[in-house]
C-alpha cells in the first residue's frame, strides 16, 4: 500500500517528515520514519508485532515524546516543533487519546472525568453535561452512569466512557491504543462498530493501533508499522 495517497486538495491530518527518535541519547540506531501522511477524516489501522514501535509512534503523534530531528505536522500545523506548553494545549484541544486501559481517574465520577478534559482544553463549553449525555447515548451507555465513580464501572463501560471523554472537545484526531484488549469478542466488535461510526459521523481522523489483525476488517486503510520504519543505520 502506498504511503502517500492524498491528493493536493484534501487537507492532511498527519504529516511526518524525516522523523528520527532515539529512546536513549546513546543509542546508535534510531526510530526513523522518512515520510507518512494521513488525510483528514481517514481511519487508519496501524498494526505490528509487540515492540515494533507502534506505541512509540503514538506517543510521538500525541506530543508526549518529541523527535530528535524531523517534523510532525498535525492538521496542517507545525506540532513537534511547538513549545511543550503549546503542545499540551494543542493536544488538549485537538487530539483525543484512548489507552489500552486506565483511561479514567478512578476516584472521580464519570462526569468529572469528562469535565476535566474540557477544563484542560479551556474551551469554555458550558453545555458539557448535555453533550456528554448525547455521547454516552451514542455509545449505548445509560446517562445515569455520569454520577458513578469511574472505578465502579466494568472494563467495557470504562473504555466506552474513555471514548466519550476523548470526543468531548470535538477533536479532529483520535489516537487509540489497543482499547479492546480487555474485552471479549462480542463486546469488542460492538465497540469497534460504535467507534468507527462515531468517527465517520463527526469526520474524525482515527489512528487505531493494535496487534490484533482480526480488527483490520473495520478499516479501509491498514498500515504495518514495520513498513513505515526504516532503521537509520540500514538506510544508507
Amino acid at each position: 500500500m502506498p504511503n502517500t495517497i492524498s491528493s493536493a486538495s484534501t487537507p492532511l491530518a498527519i504529516h511526518i517528515d524525516q522523523l528520527s527518535y532515539k529512546y536513549h541519547k546513546a543509542d546508535k540506531t534510531s526510530f526513523y520514519i522518512p515520510n507518512w501522511q494521513v488525510t483528514q477524516g481517514e481511519q487508519v489501522f496501524l498494526h505490528g508485532e509487540s515492540g515494533s514501535g507502534k506505541t512509540t509512534l503514538l506517543n510521538l503523534l500525541a506530543g508526549v515524546l518529541t523527535p530528535q530531528s524531523g517534523d510532525i505536522a498535525l492538521l496542517e500545523q507545525a506540532f513537534s516543533t511547538l513549545s511543550s506548553k503549546k503542545r499540551d494545549k494543542f493536544r488538549a484541544q485537538n487530539i483525543g487519546v484512548v489507552f489500552q486501559q486506565f483511561n479514567l481517574i478512578p476516584y472521580l465520577s464519570v462526569l468529572k472525568n469528562i469535565q476535566l478534559a474540557s477544563y484542560f482544553a479551556k474551551t469554555g463549553n458550558t453545555q458539557i453535561e448535555q453533550y456528554a449525555k448525547a455521547l454516552l447515548l451514542a455509545l449505548k451507555l445509560p446517562t445515569t452512569i455520569l454520577q458513578k465513580a469511574a472505578n465502579t464501572l466494568s472494563v467495557g463501560q470504562q473504555q466506552r466512557v474513555a471514548i466519550a471523554r476523548a470526543l468531548i472537545n470535538k477533536p479532529k484526531l483520535l489516537l487509540v491504543d489497543e482499547p479492546t484488549s480487555a474485552l471479549d469478542a462480542a463486546s469488542r466488535d460492538a465497540f469497534m462498530t460504535l467507534l468507527i461510526d462515531l468517527c465517520k459521523q463527526h469526520g474524525i481522523t482515527l489512528v487505531f493501533v493494535s496487534h490484533d489483525m482480526h480488527l483490520q476488517q473495520f478499516f479501509e486503510r491498514s498500515v504495518n508499522v514495520t513498513s513505515l520504519l526504516k532503521e537509520e543505520g540500514s538506510k544508507c
Binding site: A62, V64, S84, K85, D88, K89, R91, A92, Q93, V97, F99, F102, N103, L104, I105, P106, L116, A117, F120, A121
Partner: peptide, 14 residues
C-alpha cells in the same frame, strides 16, 4: 502513575 498519565494526555502540563 496512571492518574498522572491520564492528566497529561488531557493536556495538563507537568
Amino acid at each position: 502513575k496512571n492518574e498522572i498519565a491520564v492528566l497529561r494526555v488531557l493536556g495538563a502540563g507537568p
